[in-house]
Computed example of a mutant assay.
Amino acid sequence: MELGKVIGSVWATKKNEKLNGNKLMVVQLMDAYNKAGSRLVVAADIVGAGTGDQVLIVRGSSARYALSAAGSPVDAAIVGIVDSVVVEEHE
């Protein structure tokens, strides 16, 4: 799983029929200290996330498994909306 922040959405009028009913969101990946990275991912949203939400995403076969349609052509899926992140500092 990876942490990210939803920064936008993708509109596709033509897409694979197994993606119908799923929102496609643009997610900026973040580190555990809530610092934004430069990597962006388009992820299928299955939890109702919105722009500005911090989210958990899974990729690869875990993402395909998360969607209800078997064999969905996705590489990333939003599987949770994060309320808070607590990281203990170690020296």
Rank of each mutant, 00 (worst) to 15 (best):
M1N: 04
E2W: 08
L3C: 08
L3N: 02
L3Y: 09
K5L: 07
K5D: 03
V6A: 06
I7K: 01
I7C: 00
G8T: 04
G8H: 03
G8W: 06
V10I: 15
V10P: 05
W11R: 07
W11Y: 10
W11L: 13
A12G: 09
A12D: 05
T13C: 02
T13R: 01
K15F: 05
K15T: 02
E17L: 09
K18R: 15
K18Y: 12
K18S: 06
K18A: 06
L19F: 05
N20V: 06
N20K: 05
G21H: 12
G21P: 06
K23S: 06
K23C: 04
K23W: 04
L24C: 07
M25V: 12
V26E: 04
L29A: 00
M30S: 03
M30Q: 03
M30C: 04
M30I: 03
M30P: 02
D31G: 05
A32N: 04
Y33Q: 05
Y33N: 05
N34C: 09
N34I: 10
N34D: 13
K35W: 00
G37W: 00
G37I: 03
R39S: 03
V41L: 01
V42M: 00
V42E: 01
V42R: 00
D45H: 10
I46F: 11
V47P: 03
G50Y: 13
G50P: 10
T51Q: 14
G52L: 07
G52P: 01
G52N: 04
L56V: 15
L56D: 06
V58Q: 05
R59M: 14
G60A: 06
S61R: 14
S61Y: 15
S62P: 02
S62E: 14
S62T: 10
R64Y: 13
Y65I: 08
A66E: 10
A66P: 01
S68L: 11
S68V: 11
A69R: 11
A70M: 14
G71Y: 12
S72T: 15
P73E: 14
P73A: 13
P73H: 15
V74L: 09
V74K: 05
A76E: 09
A76H: 07
A77D: 02
V79W: 06
G80H: 07
G80A: 15
I81E: 05
I81Q: 04
V82M: 01
D83T: 11
V85L: 08
V85K: 00
V86T: 13
V86A: 11
V86G: 05
E88W: 09
E88Q: 09
E89A: 06
E91T: 12
